[in-house]
Amino acid sequence: MDSPASHRLRRGRFSEPGRLYLLSSITRDRIPIFESFQAARCIAHQFRQAQLEGAARTLAWVVMPDHVHWLIELQQSSLACLMRRFKSRSRCALFKLGKLQGTLWQPGYHDHALRREENVCAVARYVVANPLRAGLVKKLGDYPHWDAVWL
């Protein structure tokens, strides 16, 4: 169920094909389910699946223990449809793996439409550097759950 103010988050949300978006979603109660290597790779597979279906072109992503960041170019989908399918499929896949009982994601998600003047590579660096800022690793190459098209 959405929080009482969640409708305000959706006000003005517009899905524009060809536009770049930074999407973020958090696990329910910030449970660190993606500490499991298998669970994190399952999420990475869902990013690839969205690209294979033509819903979004993935530019960069990182799977943190309790949340994800996903930099995309929206293609043949809306943000709402893309995130609904991503969350549903990831939950089903983790359930089948035996890694999940119950709800996986908190309701909603955060989206930021990049402005033309924003440096896309800088945003991608911000995304993939999350494990460094969180203190999970000393160097980015030690963290296995991220990717960017520029590498």
Rank of each mutant, 00 (worst) to 15 (best):
residue 137 V to Y: 02
residue 14 F to Y: 06
residue 118 E to A: 11
residue 48 R to I: 02
residue 28 R to A: 11
residue 49 Q to T: 10
residue 82 L to M: 02
residue 56 A to R: 01
residue 3 S to I: 00
residue 19 R to D: 10
residue 29 D to F: 05
residue 80 A to F: 07
residue 147 D to L: 04
residue 139 K to A: 06
residue 140 L to A: 02
residue 35 E to H: 11
residue 125 R to E: 12
residue 41 R to D: 08
residue 106 Q to T: 06
residue 50 A to D: 03
residue 130 N to G: 03
residue 43 I to Q: 02
residue 131 P to G: 05
residue 136 L to Y: 07
residue 136 L to D: 01
residue 116 R to G: 09
residue 48 R to E: 12
residue 89 R to K: 08
residue 29 D to K: 11
residue 33 I to F: 15
residue 91 R to E: 04
residue 142 D to N: 01
residue 39 A to K: 09
residue 44 A to Y: 00
residue 115 R to L: 14
residue 111 D to M: 04
residue 55 A to D: 11
residue 109 Y to A: 07
residue 90 S to L: 01
residue 102 G to H: 14
residue 20 L to W: 15
residue 43 I to Y: 02
residue 124 A to D: 06
residue 110 H to R: 09
residue 93 A to P: 05
residue 33 I to P: 04
residue 60 A to E: 04
residue 34 F to S: 06
residue 73 E to P: 02
residue 39 A to C: 07
residue 31 I to L: 08
residue 21 Y to R: 13
residue 37 F to V: 12
residue 91 R to V: 00
residue 57 R to D: 10
residue 72 I to H: 00
residue 119 N to D: 14
residue 78 S to Q: 02
residue 53 E to Q: 15
residue 25 S to A: 14
residue 45 H to F: 03
residue 70 W to M: 09
residue 16 E to K: 12
residue 131 P to H: 05
residue 148 A to P: 04
residue 42 C to Y: 01
residue 91 R to G: 04
residue 93 A to V: 00
residue 145 H to F: 15
residue 79 L to H: 11
residue 90 S to V: 00
residue 36 S to D: 14
residue 111 D to K: 10
residue 104 L to R: 03
residue 148 A to D: 12
residue 84 R to K: 00
residue 31 I to A: 12
residue 92 C to R: 12
residue 28 R to E: 11
residue 97 L to G: 06
residue 82 L to H: 04
residue 110 H to C: 04
residue 132 L to M: 09
residue 142 D to I: 00
residue 95 F to V: 09
residue 148 A to S: 13
residue 20 L to Q: 15
residue 15 S to C: 11
residue 93 A to M: 03
residue 4 P to R: 09
residue 8 R to T: 01
residue 74 L to E: 02
residue 88 S to W: 00
residue 28 R to T: 09
residue 67 H to P: 04
residue 108 G to A: 06
residue 18 G to P: 10
residue 82 L to C: 05
residue 69 H to L: 12
residue 66 D to F: 02
residue 77 S to C: 01
residue 139 K to C: 03
residue 78 S to H: 04
residue 106 Q to W: 06
residue 48 R to G: 11
residue 21 Y to V: 03
residue 41 R to K: 09
residue 137 V to Q: 07
residue 144 P to R: 13
residue 138 K to M: 05
residue 120 V to W: 03
residue 47 F to S: 00
residue 24 S to T: 15
residue 32 P to H: 10
residue 22 L to C: 12
residue 6 S to Q: 10
residue 51 Q to K: 09
residue 99 K to G: 07
residue 51 Q to G: 08
residue 63 V to K: 15
residue 20 L to D: 13
residue 16 E to M: 12
residue 48 R to Q: 13
